[in-house]
Design a protein around this nucleic acid. Structure first.
Lengths: 247, 247
DNA sequence: CGTAATCTTGAGTCCAATCAACCAATGTGG
DNA sequence: CCACATTGGTTGATTGGACTCAAGATTACG
């Protein structure tokens, strides 16, 4: 089984054998974290770059009155804070959504890897540009789509991302999110999320039980949510899983 | 008067005399574009990196049913499409919001500049990370703040950004946006935008007339919108204008 | 096994959407 | 130079999707 970071980066372009070996040998301190724990808090200046190896996490901000906005989901293969090479302090926090494993990498180690392996550097740049593109698509979700449609869009997006790193089991995968968290993501109350999910179930589009999501007929879910996959910039030829319908 | 790109990048860190000279000598083709014109369309693979020199532009997407979501405002000093170094195609379009001037730079020229001037490369990386941070803050606007508060937040943010490149005249600046465009930005109808602006005027916080915005008492506008400026990652010591209150 | 999360459902409320005029400013062509 | 069209802004009345409040059912967990 290839390294999770390799699988992620090959969603962009194939890597050479040497690139892959370099990633396999990436040194760092593995750390186990329970669901709910903050990895990094707003204002921190982390000293390591954290690679999420197992489990899910999220970027979030808390307002003064306690309301919370989730601004990204992180899944295995994602880097939490490459920002630290440039920015003085985090402008948001990162929390674990499930029990998770992270690898803390020394900045120098990562810089050396990028220097010696330009293809990896390029792929890492791709990854941050995709993060930005996802953010833009979430803006479309919140600005233009209703609760039902934006939840559908989000679920489909996460399926593609999980597939891309080879962690989907056909049309089902582990979605370790509560309805409150889904609401904090799309700016909805848990009640609205619940009703959107009920409707998706009722219409036979999904099954969601025990934190496991099954998508019945991906094409239909894509259709109701108006999903266009271009923004994920996945290179299906090289992705970890067989290519899927190009929308 | 220093180069607009210099002014922008010095919002992050001071540049050396050599860095500044290199930016002044940046070769490229200047182009004038009228308001409303698309500079780049979704699906394009532009061949030049465009630097916005004068006027405003926006990133946007149009849905199948014609609704539009604006996902970023571009002001002088902003680069429109550094993405092209990595991505195969644009996942969104860019349109001019006012008559504007752009400088089209050959990718090689920009790469050479970054190679020869690491401080510039670093500052450019900063700029894209800030773009991402702004996107995250807009997500908070749309997810957690009501129409009144999010419009207030947006106006204050744009004031800071315009100030940072030295284009504000004290507490007023040119805001070449219609109420429809403000609505497409925050996911509101023009009617809702109009009512939010009316209330901001009525409460004496702003004057907005002939595309010119005046902020009466920036502290108050910051207060009603819950503005925290950390996410802009501006280095006030080196910014083009005197430092303002740190929130 | 008991307490706390999480999920579900119903009822009432509210903010912003929708629908619909109308006004002001700008611009264009006869 | 003025009739007329167009764009942008303003205001009122009505509607609707999501929020709020609330209570009960189910599941997770120490």
């Amino acid at each position: 089984m290839s390294h999770i970071l390799t699988r992620k980066l090959e969603g962009f372009a194939a890597l050479s054998e040497a690139d892959r070996r370099a990633i396999d040998n990436l040194a760092g301190a593995t750390q186990r974290l329970p669901a709910g724990r903050d990895l990094i808090r707003e204002g921190d200046r982390p000293e390591r770059v954290f690679l999420l190896v197992e489990g899910w996490a999220c970027r979030y901000k808390t307002l003064l009155d306690g309301r919370r906005q989730i601004m990204a989901f992180l899944i295995p293969g994602d880097l939490c804070d490459i920002h630290i090479f440039v920015l003085k302090a985090m402008d948001h926090s990162i929390a674990m959504l499930s029990d998770a494993v992270v690898l803390g990498i020394e900045p120098n180690v990562l810089l050396a890897l990028m220097d010696a392996h330009p293809a990896v550097e390029r792929a890492l740049w791709w990854a941050t540009l995709v993060d930005e593109a996802v953010l833009r698509e979430w803006l479309v979700n919140m600005g233009q789509r209703d609760a039902y449609t934006s939840i559908a869009h989000l679920l489909y997006e996460m399926w593609l991302r999980v597939r891309a790193v080879g962690l989907a089991d056909g049309d089902q995968f582990s979605l370790p999110l509560t309805q409150v968290q889904l609401g904090d993501t799309m700016g909805l109350t848990p009640v609205a999320v619940n009703r959107a999910l009920q409707r998706l179930r009722q219409e036979g589009l999904i099954t969601l039980d025990q934190r496991r999501l099954t998508i019945h007929g991906p094409e239909q879910l894509a259709a109701v949510s108006g999903f266009q996959s271009r923004y994920l910039h996945l290179n299906s030829e090289n992705s970890a899983t067989p290519p899927i319908l190009a929308h």
